[in-house]
Amino acid sequence: MRALWAEHAPRVDAVVRRLVHDPDEAADVAQDVWIQIFRALPTFRGDSQFSTWAHRIAVNRTLNAMRRARRLTGVHEELTEATAMVEDDMEQPFVRESITQALDRLPRGARTVFVLHDVEGYTHEEIASQLGITSGGSKSQLFKARARLRRLLAPLMDHLTTSTREDGYAAPLA
């Protein structure tokens, strides 16, 4: 059990941490996730990779925990205008770190949809089913989340794309 946990906890716990903003709550949820994984272990038949199976349990369990904590009540809430900007720190070394920071500034619903779709690779249909919203609602939240992130990360992203603004452009699919 320990070997299984040691191999997969860094990624399973990462999913939980991305979805749950508060570190203490995330630790509680992660423990709950692992209890559920070990409880359900006898039902794992090897149809998929263990990591994929555990990942699904982690997402389901985390969303359930968030529901219980009434954290998804704002899934339909309108995005408000940005009132706090990510620090204009051009020396912040990694774009990913900036995104993680900016994610904390998103409303919970938009953050959840962005994490599930753009980070975890879920489809809008899967997200809609998980969150009890429509596929169109999921898309709407995702695009608002991306647009908000773009605004929050404008100083960093504009700095990074200055040299490639023209060369790096590839038209969207028609």
Binding site: A9, A14, P23, A27, I99, R150
Partner: peptide, 28 residues
């Protein structure tokens, strides 16, 4: 155009985040 490039970069970076492990949130 610049906005599109920036958003696409954000999305690509977010996808990379999936492969980033973290220190487990609890000890064994």
């Amino acid at each position: 155009r610049a906005d599109f490039v920036a958003v696409r970069r954000i999305v690509a970076s977010a996808a990379e985040e999936r492969e980033q492990p973290i220190v487990p949130l609890n000890s064994w």
